[in-house]
Measured scan of single mutants.
Amino acid sequence: LTVEVTLDGRRIELHGLSEEAHEILRHALERNADDKEIKKILEELRK
């Protein structure tokens, strides 16, 4: 799955996400998580 997010003013596409990762990010974006929170989530998903 692919998600497009804006971090530090740049639009980035995240490819190859699992369903779980996609859901976690989608929920964070829906509640307008800040860049710091999104980065933390991405860091966790990379593990």
Score class of each variant (00 low, 15 high):
A21K: 03
E4R: 02
N32Y: 11
E20S: 11
H27N: 15
G16V: 05
L45M: 11
E20Q: 12
E37M: 08
L25F: 02
V3H: 05
E43A: 12
A33H: 05
I12K: 02
L45G: 03
A21I: 09
E19Q: 13
D35Y: 10
R10F: 14
L29M: 12
H15F: 08
L29G: 03
E20T: 11
V5R: 01
A33T: 05
R46Y: 12
R46I: 15
R46L: 15
L7R: 04
E13S: 10
H22R: 10
K47P: 11
I38T: 01
I41R: 01
T2E: 04
I12P: 02
L45T: 03
G9E: 04
E4G: 01
D35T: 10
I24V: 09
D35P: 09
A33F: 08
I38N: 00
E43Q: 11
E44L: 10
I12L: 07
R10W: 06
A28T: 02
V3A: 08
E13Q: 11
K47L: 15
A21T: 06
K47W: 11
K36S: 14
G9H: 02
L1M: 13
G16H: 11
L14R: 01
S18G: 07
I24T: 11
N32D: 09
R26Q: 14
E44W: 10
E43H: 12
L7P: 04
R26P: 00
R31A: 12
G9C: 04
G9V: 02
H15W: 07
E4V: 15
H27I: 11
K47A: 13
E37C: 06
L42H: 01
E37T: 09
I41K: 01
K36W: 13
E13W: 03
I38A: 01
E44C: 07
S18R: 03
K36P: 06
L25W: 00
G9M: 01
L42P: 00
A21M: 14
E44V: 08
E13C: 08
A21D: 13
E19I: 13
S18E: 04
E43P: 00
D34F: 05
E20K: 11
E30Q: 11
L14Q: 02
E13I: 15
I12S: 02
D34V: 06
K40V: 10
K40Y: 07
R11L: 14
V5H: 02
E4D: 06
E37H: 06
K47Q: 13
T2G: 06
I38M: 12
E4F: 03
E20C: 06
H15E: 10
L29T: 06
N32M: 13
V5T: 02
E43C: 10
R31N: 14
I12R: 03
E30I: 07
V3R: 03
R26S: 12
R46E: 13
L17D: 01
E43T: 08
R11F: 09
E4N: 05
